[in-house]
């Protein structure tokens, strides 16, 4: 929802805190996911993730979530899905060149990033975000994160 999306950026700090809290809770529950079977667990987690994040961030379930690196403004809402924005077409009023009624996702990202920490990740360290892994589409990025942390077999395709 557009209005929620803006609220999440405005409250980027608590939103990010809760987001990480939830993520670490899900990681701690790994034994449970293992017992239930990872495949079945992912489906359940994905169901909740999809609904919660669609409401709060207009999430597109790319499965490659970078919200904490983009000031809690989801770059998948950029019509060009730019992971390292903004592009050169931002309007004078700060709105998108493709969707003139929408605030540029990346102007929002900078706004949110400034609130996260003084050395928020977009601003000083020049980190370049990797292109989206399209194999993760419609998968739970939370679950993928859990498995990255808990899976020690070294298999990239968890």
């Amino acid at each position: 929802m557009y209005i929620m999306r803006k609220i999440m950026v405005t409250s980027a700090k608590p939103a990010n805190y809760i987001y990480h809290l939830l993520e670490s809770a899900l990681v701690k529950l790994d034994p449970l996911w293992k017992r239930l079977g990872y495949q079945r667990s992912e489906k359940t987690i994905a169901f909740f993730e999809k609904n919660i994040k669609a409401f709060l961030f207009d999430c597109k379930m790319c499965g490659d979530c970078v919200l904490d690196k983009t000031g809690m403004s989801c770059p998948m809402n950029c019509p060009k899905q730019i992971r390292n924005g903004p592009c050169g077409g931002v309007r004078d009023n700060g709105n998108c060149e493709v969707k003139p009624e929408m605030r540029c996702v990346w102007i929002e990202a900078w706004r949110g990033a400034k609130k996260l920490t003084p050395d928020s990740r977009i601003t000083p360290d020049l980190e370049i975000l990797a292109p989206v892994n399209h194999r993760h589409k419609d998968r739970s990025s939370w679950f993928i994160k859990i498995r990255e942390i808990t899976d020690t077999s070294g298999d990239r395709n968890v």
Binding site: P79, K80, Q81, I82, R83, N84, G85, C87, I128, L129, A130, P131, V132, H134
Partner: peptide, 9 residues
């Protein structure tokens, strides 16, 4: 629209 990459990547 493809936009698989962006100018940086």
């Amino acid at each position: 629209p493809v936009f698989d990459l962006d100018s940086m990547t």
